Structure formats: C-alpha cells, structure tokens
Simulated assay, not measured.
Amino acid sequence: MPNPKLVPLVLPEDERRVLEGWTRRRTTALALRARIVLACAESAESNTVVAQRLDLSRHTVGTWRARFLRDRLGGLSDEPRPGRPRTISDDQVEQIVVTTLGTTRTP
C-alpha cells in the first residue's frame, strides 16, 4: 500500500533517458543518485523500502528524492561547499576516475 504522505515521483521520458545514461557511469556519485531517483520513480514504495532494495540508508534515499523533486536533474549535482573554490570541474574529476579505473598497472 503506497504511503499517502509520500510525494509521487513522476519522470518525463527525457529525464528518464538522462538518468539512465548517468547510471552507466561506473560508480560515480551522480550514478548512485540517478539509481535512487529511478528506483523511487518505478514504484510508490517508501524511502525505507527503496533504501533496503539498494542497500543504502533511508536518509540517503530521502535526501536525493527530495532534492530531485525540488530541483529536478539540477538537484542531483553537488552543491557549492564552503572554503577555497575548486580548481577542477566535476567533468575533469570523472574523466580522471574513468581513465584510472580503465587502465592496468604495468610493472
């Protein structure tokens, strides 16, 4: 039985395609967030049930569901943090991780 307090997460086809593309990005934070949103959209299950299915905490699922509902796809990006501004972009970080994971170490 769906939770009456839970706001339904409805995905238009264009957003679904973007999220599915993000899930193919190995193990980046954005891929995890996209999997959470897709799982929430697939059914009207509570954050607890989705969290158990994805082996995450209920708080994590609730955070990303709420941010997606509030800001849509833009809400899944990292928000600015206090301190020194970054000198490297998210795309550069992802490229380094993908390159590093895709290479083998030679002796």
Rank of each mutant, 00 (worst) to 15 (best):
M1G: 08
P2H: 03
P2I: 07
N3E: 04
N3C: 09
P4I: 05
K5L: 12
L9W: 03
V10P: 01
L11D: 08
L11E: 07
P12H: 09
E13N: 06
E13V: 08
E13M: 13
E13I: 13
E13S: 14
D14E: 15
E15N: 10
E15M: 03
E15R: 05
R16M: 04
R17K: 12
R17M: 05
R17H: 06
R17C: 12
V18Y: 07
E20S: 05
E20H: 04
G21P: 06
W22K: 06
W22L: 08
R24Q: 06
R24A: 12
R26D: 14
R26F: 07
R26T: 07
R26W: 10
T27A: 11
T27C: 11
T27I: 10
T28S: 07
A29G: 08
L30R: 02
A34P: 06
R35A: 07
I36S: 01
V37Q: 00
L38Y: 00
L38T: 02
A39W: 02
A39C: 02
C40E: 01
A41F: 00
E42N: 05
E42W: 03
E45N: 03
E45M: 02
S46Q: 01
N47V: 03
T48C: 02
V49H: 01
V50P: 00
V50R: 00
V50F: 00
V50E: 00
V50Q: 00
A51Y: 01
Q52F: 10
Q52A: 12
Q52N: 14
R53Q: 09
R53S: 09
R53T: 04
R53I: 04
R53Y: 03
R53E: 04
R53H: 04
L54D: 08
S57V: 00
S57N: 04
R58Q: 05
T60E: 02
V61G: 00
G62K: 01
R65H: 03
A66Q: 11
R67G: 01
F68V: 02
L69P: 02
R70Q: 06
D71W: 13
D71E: 08
D71G: 05
L73C: 13
L73E: 07
L73V: 07
L73D: 10
G75E: 06
L76K: 05
S77H: 12
S77Y: 15
S77R: 13
D78S: 06
D78L: 11
P80Q: 08
R84C: 11
R84Y: 10
P85W: 12
P85H: 09
T87S: 14
I88C: 14
D90F: 12
D91I: 10
D91V: 15
Q92I: 15
Q92S: 10
E94G: 06
E94W: 10
E94M: 11
Q95F: 15
I96K: 12
V97S: 08
V97G: 08
V98A: 14
T100V: 15
L101R: 09
L101S: 14
G102T: 07
T103Y: 08
T103V: 05
R105S: 11
T106P: 09
P107T: 06
